[in-house]
Nucleic acid binder design. Structure first.
Lengths: 248, 248
DNA sequence: CGACGATTTGACAGGGCTCAAATCCTGTGG
DNA sequence: CCACAGGATTTGAGCCCTGTCAAATCGTCG
């Protein structure tokens, strides 16, 4: 199957990301690209791609749209435990365990590539750098998860929300989804509340406080960071856990 | 080097744990045991084994004692993001990234085995089940981290502390460190506070509330769970994320 | 016995939640 | 093009959960 230009630009975020973690050979890129284009899928907003308790039989690579990992309590309380942005992989290795411990849902319309477990294992078996790149992704995810723990456990509301904005911005940047000091912010305040462990009402008031301080503008599904250093200070944000730069 | 009986019993928790994740061959067990016994180390309580920002050049397997992963904010606020119990591995694959994003410290005196990166990679290269077992450990850690996110973000103090006790108990059980409905609890309330994102004062009051409800006894560094089902209900605890049982 | 850390208690303040309602936005159908 | 519906955002009021500060008590170890 020949690749169209639009397919190429669609899969580009994936390689941008993986390349930061491990330099990939042209062959590896070709094989992965081919596998992804064959498994292209679309989903609307608010769809569960996979739910807690489901067995895992494939790997999904997000090409466009925002997704989240979340868990819920019996009484409906929901916590978004991480976001998944274009170029990132859900569950690169989740099939090693028996079932999902959490759910994955789209927050916006999304395009992703679904690769069967067998095919994914063949790909990573044949190319060590590719395998390591995917493992590094999992490890970075782990690090993000830890940062979220301190965010939820030890930062106050204003710091938490500021930190969320810093993280989103820095994670979107390497895949080319920021524009100077602004980026798209296609999720609802409800989603932000569930990501920061706050109530919607208080999240809203906290966002207004950040607006009033002049650090950000959040309007029309767009986030503008007027003062990145200021926002970082307010958030006690230090991006090293994101492993944004080429490793040693 | 012939192994003494005491060495054997020391490394037993490691194999109990790994065997749940992947059945290991006698050869793999032998090689790993040998590597561990060669790298035995001791640490006192409250020692950092490795700190945020440090490069990683070895893998540590905990044989006895309790450790924690933690992060701190500039102003000193600390969040324990996970515990490490006997039989568990710190950083099985952290060397794939450049530096530690968090610190690891002992909460009690501890014995652990330090295996160089090269040796660890040789071991896991030669035995696929062993490699997968270690990867599964990392994935389970990931799942625990996610559960902590919902604990910190969406459970109230009483639920959080109850959940912490449930998790500790269930993680100690498979390595034989529980005794009926009780287990050792060698950490301070300060540590529990930093693990649950509460202040020490409020943690203390919450523990008293759990005591008053008759669900637990916590005294003399020992936790007795009088009513495990009741404690689980109070915690909204569901242990599946711990992957305690043999997979597929 | 003294010292120091851990636990506990008290008093008080405030950050964040809940409930409720108003307003704004967006997409849809007439 | 306008009316309307439903969701998202915003505002208000009141309360309570949790944090802070300070001091007392308990425990342990030298």
């Amino acid at each position: 199957m020949p690749l169209s230009t639009s397919d190429r630009s669609l899969v580009e975020p994936v390689f941008r990301r993986l390349n930061v973690l491990r330099p990939l050979s042209a062959e590896a890129r070709g094989l992965l690209e081919y596998a992804m284009v064959e498994g292209l899928q679309r989903a609307g907003p608010g769809e569960d791609l996979i739910s807690e308790g489901d067995p895992v039989n494939s790997v999904r690579v997000v090409l466009s749209g925002w997704l989240c990992r979340y868990k819920t309590l019996e009484d409906g309380r929901r916590q978004i435990v991480n976001f998944i942005f274009p170029g990132e992989t859900c569950d690169a290795h989740a099939f090693l365990l028996s079932v999902m411990d959490h759910s994955i849902a789209t927050l916006t319309p999304a395009v992703y590539a679904e690769i069967t477990r067998a095919r994914f294992e063949r790909l990573t078996w044949e190319d060590r750098a590719l395998a390591e790149a995917f493992w590094c992704e999992t490890l970075v995810n782990n690090a993000i998860q830890r940062e979220w723990a301190i965010n939820l456990g030890r930062r106050v509301a204003l710091e938490r929300v500021a930190h969320l904005f810093c993280e989103i911005f820095e994670r979107l940047r390497p895949v080319g989804m920021t524009d100077g000091r602004s980026c798209n912010m296609p999720i609802t305040q409800m989603d932000m509340a569930d990501a920061t462990g706050l109530s919607v009402v208080h999240l809203n008031r906290t966002v207004q406080e950040l607006r009033a301080s002049g650090l950000i503008v959040l309007r029309d599904r767009t986030l503008i960071i007027n003062d990145l250093d200021g926002l970082r200070d307010a958030a006690l944000f230090s991006p090293s856990y994101l492993q944004l730069y080429r490793l040693g």
